[in-house]
Design a protein around this nucleic acid. Structure first.
Length: 559
RNA sequence: GACCCCGUAGCUCAGCCGGAUAGAGCGGUUGAUUCCUAAUCAACAGGUCGCAGGUUCGAGUCCUGCCGGGGUCGCCA
């Protein structure tokens, strides 16, 4: 693509336009019939002292056939360019291999991504999916862009809740599943509410845990180990793999040390018995020690951020967390800046929308909410039913059902901008047709099917791909690398999923055109043409496969 | 009260650095199965891009104000 834009910029330069500006201004028009690429000439009118229409004329007049551009025409103030389709197609398809879309953009830089981050001793609920799936996709696209990525699962393994939990464990015994932990916590929580003595005991347990009491530590270790094992089965199901598992508890001492340090240097001060960092009128004060002397989540987060900087020297650190915590992260980053860390501006809160039930925030405390596992199981159940209906003879049904059901769920999170809320309705979340994960899998499987039937890819002559449908597909294929870069730049995986959907739809349209007009089929009698079309199908297959993998969706070859 | 997100077709949403005639899916209507698998495709119907100003040659896109929905605002995480 670059060399074609460069060719247009050169023409513009000969008409007196700054080449860099011209390069940046070249764009594909929305109406794709109009031109392949176009250059609007308004902005140089003043500098050149000429009407935009005249500038466009001048640019068009500079054109000489060069093997890259087929025609250059002034249409009003726009220069409309048609590319040499043969040349472009050859470049575009040659670029596609198993590394298509990779770039060197991030080489030498490390990006730390904090995602998943559930609380232990509680089951993973549907809304936990968002951080995990979005975070994993961001890890994948950043790796594809050349970054070194450190994906961290930062467990909520500390806090006042654990005091209550231990009251429950002492009363009702040691649980053996996360569900039991949760039930005991809920019961203990109610018990403490009605019973001031129990509340005191909970506080005492929390303190004992912080101080390293042996019994408290044993309970804590059990809960953590068991939780992690259960989380891992769900993570594995979803293709989520963290590089590092950290927890808040490990930053307890470092957190206290930070508070002391900030007090000594005067960055923090006493307020109502606690310790705060005064930020600004907008961001207010940031509490880092409670009036009972205990640290808070934010204290540990400050210590963790600092530790990660020391460990990884990151160029970017992303926190993939619910939008409800936006204010908190603004405070956290401002606090880091106030502590003198110039790297505070490398931290970014990747915020995602909430899971709503009937338009309002889902109540997840007190044991409510739908577990992630039950959503995945329901997805698989529905996928299984569809397979029985559509393709009952296929081998490996169970694995395919699992993969398709999961794809439907994952697409809910990655098919739309992260900040959108999700309204929890089973029929919305588990859709299998239209703009969905299973549709993308279907199109990929269909491309694989054509290649199987057609005998695979051989050397081919790209210039034979001269049809209108083919041209649309080729142009679309060439946009993939850009979608990956934009996903990285904006921390927005839906740039990739949108691209994949457009490509998939274009491809289905291309393929089904053959049902109406036999000359448009992929598998035709003319061997050279067939080879070229199979080459194109393989480009689509390859691109879909890479894109789906970046999103964490399994690219099935049959379904 | 302050701040943040959202407002585009009946519903759910795309729309990239501002560019020419606003696009999908679902739902509705009508067709299509002698290349892969109809989990599909083609076509039709459906729009005051919340409202009002502003910047600009040009605004769904940027700025200001307002309206509506959701969210957040030191002793939870």
């Amino acid at each position: 693509m670059d060399q074609f834009i460069e060719a247009i910029a050169s023409l513009a330069a000969r008409a007196g336009i700054d080449k860099d500006q011209a390069r940046a201004a070249v764009a594909a028009p929305k109406e794709r019939d109009r031109a392949d690429l176009s250059l609007p000439c308004f902005r140089w009118a003043k500098a050149l002292g000429k009407a935009p229409n005249q500038i466009a004329e001048d640019v068009a007049a500079a054109f000489e056939p060069d093997g890259l551009l087929a025609s250059v025409e002034a249409v009003g103030p726009f220069v409309n360019v048609k590319l040499d389709r043969g040349a472009f197609t050859k470049f575009a398809l040659d670029a596609i291999d198993e590394n298509y879309g990779k770039s060197e953009e991030g080489v030498g830089a490390t990006v730390v991504i904090d995602y998943g981050s559930p609380n232990i001793a509680k089951p993973l609920l549907f809304h936990h999916l968002r951080s995990a799936v979005i975070g994993q996709a961001l890890c994948n696209v950043h790796r594809w862009a050349g970054y070194k990525v450190v994906g961290i699962n930062f467990l909520g393994d500390l806090g006042t809740a654990f005091g209550k939990l231990m009251v429950g464990i002492e009363k009702w015994g040691e649980p053996t599943t996360v569900a039991e932990y949760n039930r005991i916590y809920v019961n203990a929580s109610n018990f403490c509410k009605e019973n001031e003595g129990a509340m005191d005991a909970a506080r005492a347990w929390a303190k004992r845990l912080e101080e390293g009491d042996e019994t408290a530590l044993r309970h804590w270790t059990n809960a953590r180990k068991l939780s992690l094992a259960e989380f891992d089965t769900v993570y594995e199901w979803l293709g989520i793999k963290h590089d590092v598992v950290d927890g808040e508890k490990q930053y307890l001492d470092a957190g206290h040390a930070v508070v002391v340090e900030l007090l000594n240097e005067g960055t923090a001060k006493e307020s109502d018995g606690g310790i705060v960092i005064e930020l600004s009128k907008k961001l207010k004060a940031f509490l880092i020690r409670k009036n009972d002397g205990a640290s808070l989540y934010q204290t540990r987060d400050l210590a963790a951020a600092r530790d990660r900087m020391e460990r990884y020297d990151f160029a970017k650190m992303l926190y993939v967390v619910d939008i409800a915590q936006e204010f908190y992260f603004n405070q956290l980053f401002a606090a880091l800046a106030k502590m003198g860390h110039a790297w505070a501006d490398r931290c970014k809160h990747v915020k995602f929308g909430q899971v709503l039930v009937d338009g309002s925030r889902a109540k997840t405390r007190e044991g409510g909410g739908t577990t992630l596992e039950s959503v995945l199981q329901e997805g698989v159940r529905r996928a299984r039913a569809i397979i029985e209906e559509k393709n009952p003879e296929i081998e490996g049904k169970e694995a395919i059902a699992k993969s398709v059901g999961t794809a439907a769920v994952i697409y809910c999170d990655l098919g739309f901008p992260t900040t959108k809320n999700i309204d929890f309705k089973w029929d919305e979340i588990l859709r299998f047709d239209g703009r969905t994960g299973p549709y993308l899998q279907y199109v990929h499987a269909s491309a694989c099917g054509i290649l199987r039937k057609g005998g695979g890819v051989t050397k081919f002559d790209a210039s034979l791909l001269a049809g209108e449908h083919e041209w649309n597909l080729v142009r679309r294929l060439a946009e993939f690398p850009d979608s990956v870069q934009r996903a990285c730049r904006d921390c927005e995986p839906s740039h990739v999923s949108n691209f994949l959907y457009d490509l998939a739809r274009e491809f289905r349209s291309y393929h089904t055109a053959g049902s109406r007009d036999a000359s448009l089929r992929v598998i035709v009698d003319d061997d050279a043409l067939k080879a070229a079309r199979l080459g194109l199908v393989d480009g689509v297959r390859q691109t879909l496969k890479i894109g789906l993998t970046l999103l964490g969706i399994d690219p099935l070859e049959r379904m």
